Computed example of a mutant assay.
Amino acid sequence: MGGPFDDLTETVFADKTVLTESYQPETILERDEEIEAYSHALQDVLFGRTPENIFVYGKAGLGKTAVTKYMLEELREEVPTRESADNLHTHTANCNGRTLFMVVRNLVNRLLPDHASPFPERGLGTGDAFDELYRQFDRIGGTHLVVFDEIDHLEDANTLLYELPRARANGHITDAKVGVIGISNDYTFRQTLSPKVKDTLMETEISFSPYDAAELRTILDHRADHAFVDGVCDTSAIAKAAALAAQDMGNARQALDLLRVGAELAEQNGETPVTDAHIETARERVQRGRVTNKIRDQTEHAQYILEAIANLQTSGEVPARSKEIQRTYEQVADSHAASPLSTLKSIQDHLSDLHMLGFLRRHEQNKGLSGGQYYEYELDLDPALVLETRTEIAKHTE
């Protein structure tokens, strides 16, 4: 009797990783304007000057992180060839799901010498962590570029963006130079910052717009050349994946997922080449998977709010005001043995974030002097998918 893998002798993929999110391309396509803007913003590093602060904006999958990695790698290669440039050190911190203390502590621990004890998790505060971070910057010297990915997810971004860019001016750092690169999915993130931070940050803004179908086609053609065995993927299938992604979000990640999953379906069915039909079949699977992953990426209480609105939507009680959502949210939190957020303002902040991320539709109501102005919300997703995802998450956290 043969084994379960005996029939798996051929594959359509030459290098499947080329179609995954983690792949860092050697060549960045269709982002020439953003690369040029980045180059101008980083040029001070080459002349030994304090680097500009940079903020990169755009929805997920538009190449922000890939371009940032590419530019920092190019900068690291260029710095040793410039007499005026100081030694360059780059650091990256993902802010999603982390407190400011956790982010700063993690940076400190990566900078500490090998023989040093890690910065403690308890007993010291965020101010202590910043003090140690400054000591390590000065100990190492040179120029430090610190990338804060998903900075819009950091609750205390104001403190971070007031402290680090002003560290040298305030005398916390004397020997090192520090620049901040913030990456945000929220185009309105700057509006959430305090006036004093806005006034002192003086950052360069680089905005990444969605790709069109032609740009996505160029990216997919280049990836397909490396990803597939010759002759196993129709050019029309590549065009189909590019067109579908452009119609939806203009998202390269989505286009790559469509092409990869379409090829997986073709391989599973023993069918070659990969055709438009495989891409069309992959569409529903990719959309469902992406929504599920987006829900999983939200904070615990944001997920409870989504679950609450899904319950309201299932029973036909939407659009709903924030007060109505709060009541159902409290019931959901109780059902998961969690302490609910105590203020309506905190619920409204989460609703605003979820609307910005595309989970919710928001309707503005103006009832004049008698009723005032307020928002009502409903899901912009299938409520059954939200509830199904929440059930799965709850199962794995029990």
Rank of each mutant, 00 (worst) to 15 (best):
G171P: 03
R139I: 12
H153C: 10
D156H: 15
R166M: 07
H144T: 13
A167G: 00
A157K: 09
E163C: 11
L154M: 05
H144N: 07
D175K: 15
A167C: 13
D149P: 08
G141K: 00
V147M: 00
E150C: 05
V146E: 02
L164C: 05
D175I: 14
L145H: 05
P165N: 04
R166A: 03
V146Q: 03
V147Y: 02
V147P: 06
H144V: 09
N170R: 10
V146A: 09
F148P: 02
T143A: 02
Y162C: 04
D152T: 14
N170C: 13
D138G: 05
L160Y: 03
T143K: 00
F148H: 04
G142M: 06
A169I: 13
L154T: 04
T143C: 04
E150L: 08
I151Y: 10
F148M: 00
H144S: 09
A167R: 10
H172R: 06
I173T: 12
I140K: 00
A167I: 14
H153N: 14
I173A: 06
E163I: 00
Y162D: 04
E155C: 04
T174A: 13
H144W: 02
R166G: 04
T143F: 10
H153I: 12
H144P: 11
G142A: 06
G171E: 12
E155A: 13
L145Y: 09
N158S: 14
E150N: 02
F148N: 01
I173N: 01
L161W: 01
T143Y: 07
N170V: 15
I173S: 01
H172F: 15
G142L: 07
H144I: 12
V147I: 14
L161T: 10
I173W: 02
R139P: 07
R139V: 08
T159N: 12
T143D: 08
L160Q: 11
R168Y: 01
L161C: 08
E150S: 06
A167M: 08
N170A: 10
L145I: 10
L145D: 07
E155Q: 11
R168N: 14
D138F: 00
D152K: 06
E163P: 02
D175F: 13
G142Y: 00
E150A: 02
L161K: 04
D138M: 11
P165F: 02
D152W: 12
L160M: 01
E163Y: 08
E155Y: 13
E150G: 00
D138I: 10
T143S: 09
V146F: 04
I151P: 12
A157P: 15
D175S: 10
Y162S: 09
H153K: 08
I140N: 05
A169P: 07
I173D: 00
H144K: 06
I151T: 02
L160A: 10
D175P: 11
H153M: 10
T159R: 13
P165D: 08
A167H: 06
D156L: 12
Y162E: 07
H172K: 07
R166H: 00
D149N: 09
G141L: 11
A169T: 13
T159M: 14
D138C: 05
A169S: 05
E163W: 01
A169D: 11
V146S: 04
R168A: 14
N170H: 12
